Simulated assay, not measured.
Amino acid sequence: MNYQPLTKKQVGALLKVLSSDISREVLTELSVSKDESGHTVLVATDGYVLAVLPAGDFSDIADKTISRDALTRWYKLASTKDLLTSEELHELAGEPAGVYPNWLRQIRDATPGAIEQVILNPDYLVTMEKLAGDGLAYTTHGQLGALVASREGARYVVMPKKAA
C-alpha cells in the first residue's frame, strides 16, 4: 500500500472532503495516521464524508497533519499535469491543531445492513469518485449508517442525511 501521487483533480476533491469550518480547526487538516493494521494512511473528513488513503512511506510523519491552507496553495500553483508527490507532502506536514476524531471506530463499528431508502448529498458521491479516480461501489450500513467503499487500500465513507 504505497502512496500514489495525487493529480490536481484528486487534490481538488480532497480539499472538498476537508472541512473549511475554522470553528472545527482539526477537521481542516489532512491527518497522517495509522490504520488498524499499523499502515500509515492519510485521513480527511468534514464530519459528513471521510477518505482514508494509503500513505506507504509516511511513518516518519505519523501523527502530524497537513493544513487545508497548505494543500490549497499547492492546488492553486499546480498545473493540470502536476502530481502531489510524497516529498511535497512531507514538506507540508506540521503539528496538528488538536485531537483528530476517532475515524477508525467509525469504520470498525459500521455493520453492513439493508436499507429501503437513504437520503444523500449527491455531491459527496461525485467528490469521492473524483478522489478515487473512478466509480465506487458502496456497502450500506443501515438507514442512518455510513456508506463505505474500498479500493486499492483506500476507503471512502459518505454519511447519509437525516430524514426531514
Rank of each mutant, 00 (worst) to 15 (best):
R24Y: 11
R24E: 12
V26N: 00
L27K: 00
L27Y: 01
E29W: 03
E29P: 00
S31D: 11
S31V: 07
S33H: 12
K34I: 12
E36V: 11
E36R: 14
S37T: 12
S37F: 12
S37K: 13
G38D: 03
G38C: 00
G38I: 01
T40L: 08
T40G: 10
T40Y: 12
T40W: 07
T40H: 14
V41A: 06
V41K: 07
V43W: 06
V43E: 08
V43K: 05
A44W: 02
T45R: 06
D46T: 01
G47T: 05
G47Y: 08
V49G: 11
L50D: 04
A51F: 04
A51I: 06
A51G: 07
V52A: 09
V52L: 12
V52D: 08
P54M: 10
A55M: 06
A55K: 06
D57V: 08
D57N: 12
F58A: 15
I61V: 15
D63C: 11
T65R: 03
S67D: 08
D69S: 14
D69V: 11
A70C: 00
A70K: 07
L71S: 07
T72Q: 15
R73Y: 11
K76G: 10
K76H: 13
K76W: 10
L77V: 02
L77M: 10
A78W: 09
A78I: 05
D82F: 08
D82H: 12
L83W: 06
L84E: 05
T85K: 04
T85L: 04
T85I: 06
E87R: 08
E88S: 08
L89D: 03
L89I: 03
